[in-house]
Write a protein that binds this DNA or RNA. Structure first.
Lengths: 250, 250
DNA sequence: AATTCATTTTCCATCAGGTGGAAAAGAGGA
DNA sequence: TCCTCTTTTCCACCTGATGGAAAATGAATT
């Protein structure tokens, strides 16, 4: 039904990715449970095609070929997202965005503009720091606290407006709250007068992206947050279903 | 020596990428020369793992899983580049950058700072328009003129300084010159007083990235451009060799 | 509706090719 | 140098991938 060696090659790539993109053969063996000989053969195949690199210390790392494929695939995610973002616009009347985490940055992947005259727009492709945005908070809330902490250490949480949360422990508490309530707010923390509400897009139980609506403070504050978040959650659920693997191919 | 079914799965993914990320089963068959049954089985495997999607019209597209792997791999490119960028710094005494083209933007992927007191720095991850930077010119000079032209149409080539080239035909001529001489200059076109020199990073004959050195106008202008460019070319060649698949593992 | 054609999906007998245990080679460390 | 841990190679076994051909699907045409 499914090609075993291909599945295993994917296991190897995923194991590498989970080790931060770099690992020794035996670390991969430990993680995948496959015998050394098998892993070595798969790695050689991936190596010959440029999807894996071998460092001078014989460790293996993800290769440049994946950057190319990922780039093409990334362009398409925006396309699939558009209908869902359009639903968000219909629901809220405000501009809707899809964002993912890339390294320490939040990257806006797709956008559908609000029909209103006064509307937000952030160019697609823009990179912002996670701590001052609703999408960033949602994305980090979906990862282990240690990882979020590391991001804050590296980025330094610079102040963007008087409302920006610049204290690390306050932010970690905020992430807990975000996880508990299922959505995040940005009340002029990135730009004064601009408020946002973001919800996670899940693939299984993994947070793979965030969807947000954003607009002028007065309009966003006029909406019922919990009701809006609930509607957004449903839309994000639909999109999440499309994002990853099919539920459970039997 | 190499796992056949894994190689074929990669052929399928590459065929999809070359079709713009989306194709029907028979289009993939035409491109790879594999029988339908085989391709279908491989696609099912990739589908189950989220590396391929199936659209409602039964066509196949690259899936979200590749975005995740590509993101991790992309982060590593910066790591591999650092030793080469350090060589550039040693050669020129100025800050060195690695940049790639992503959509209509130039993205800085990695940087090694100059040891000088007065030095350039552009945050890694920053996006700038191609027309006002040396790296942007190099990257666009490596693509078909029609594509470069389309980028200029969409971005509008806004003026950043009095030196910015804002005329499209002048810029297209500049790109020809860049391609002929093998390097590009930025003489205060993005920021007054900052000059840069950039060379292409090639994987085979494809321009996949650009490396640059940049610093205060007086210091950069004091260097012998052709000599510097020649040294940079050699370093970029070394890095280009690491970037893609190995030449020909027999 | 009924027919045709193109494309996708399923099936199954065959044997190519992947598998994994075990041995050899290599890299550090004491 | 010797010892230990990791990576790499090897090969007999037999699982599991293969691909041709038939069935199913769906879109277009009469």
């Amino acid at each position: 039904m499914s090609v075993q060696s291909v599945e295993r090659a994917l296991d190897v790539l995923e194991a590498l990715a989970e080790h931060g993109g770099e690992a020794g053969l035996s670390e991969i063996a430990a993680r995948t449970g496959l015998p050394n000989g098998t892993i070595h053969r798969l790695l050689r195949t991936l190596l010959a095609r440029g999807y894996v690199r071998q460092e001078s210390d014989r460790r293996y790392a993800l290769g440049g070929g994946l950057v190319r494929l990922g780039g093409v695939a990334g362009g398409m995610v925006g396309t699939w997202a558009r209908p869902y973002l359009a639903q968000l616009v219909e629901l809220s009347g405000e501009t809707a965005n899809l964002a993912v985490l890339e390294g320490d940055f939040v990257v806006y992947v797709a956008q559908v503009l609000s029909p209103r005259r006064l509307r937000m727009f952030a160019e697609v492709g823009r990179r912002v720091l996670p701590h001052s945005t609703a999408v960033g908070k949602v994305l980090l809330a979906g990862r282990p606290p240690a990882e979020a902490k590391a991001v804050f250490e590296r980025t330094g949480m610079p102040r963007r407006t008087p409302n920006t949360i610049v204290d690390q422990s306050a932010m970690l508490a905020e992430l807990d709250a975000v996880q508990a309530r299922g959505y995040a707010l940005d009340l002029g923390e990135e730009e004064l007068g601009v408020h946002c509400l973001a919800v996670p897009v899940r693939d299984g139980d993994r947070v793979v992206a965030a969807m947000s609506v954003s607009g002028p403070a007065e309009r966003i504050d006029g909406l019922d947050r919990d009701e809006l978040a609930e509607g957004m959650r449903k839309i994000a659920l639909g999109f999440g279903g499309e994002f990853g693997p099919v539920p459970a191919g039997h």
